[in-house]
Amino acid sequence: MNIYDIIFYLFAGITIISGFLVVSVKNIVHAAFYLLFTLFGIAGLYVLLGADFIAIVQIMVYVGGILILILFGVMLTNKIVDVEIKSESFQVIPAIIFIGILMGGLVFLMVTTNWENNELIIPLTTTKILGNIILTDYILIFELLGILLLIALIGAATIARKDKV
């Protein structure tokens, strides 16, 4: 068990524990804050896998952006404190069947996959490789992404604007 494994289990632990707390705490504001740790832990796992760009996307977009939207969504609800969240279990048997199938599939994949444990000997910078691809083969896609974001921007503003045209 080297330092790599220790850091992996640290991030995996943060992710799993806070993910469990997200679905189990009664207070929705606390649940939203625990989601921060879940998303951050996943970003750490991406870094350990050598996917630096995806880790940056995770931090910037999910931790920095989506979570703020979720928090604002929670804050915009009328009753934050008094809301009764049902956390009893119902439909137990179908849930057990489906979760069992899912777990079985995941464990099957885990056992049968040939894990090549390439440790990060060379610090990879996938971001630069991505940049080269963007500016050669996918330069049109890059500009189209700008237009897509423009559509999203105008659409979001139009929907959020109340009634004045």
Binding site: M60, V61, G65, I68, L69, L149, A157, R161
Partner: peptide, 14 residues
Amino acid sequence: FYVIALIFLIFDVE
């Protein structure tokens, strides 16, 4: 605040 956050998210992706 929500509208500002929405606009922020778009520029975040940018």
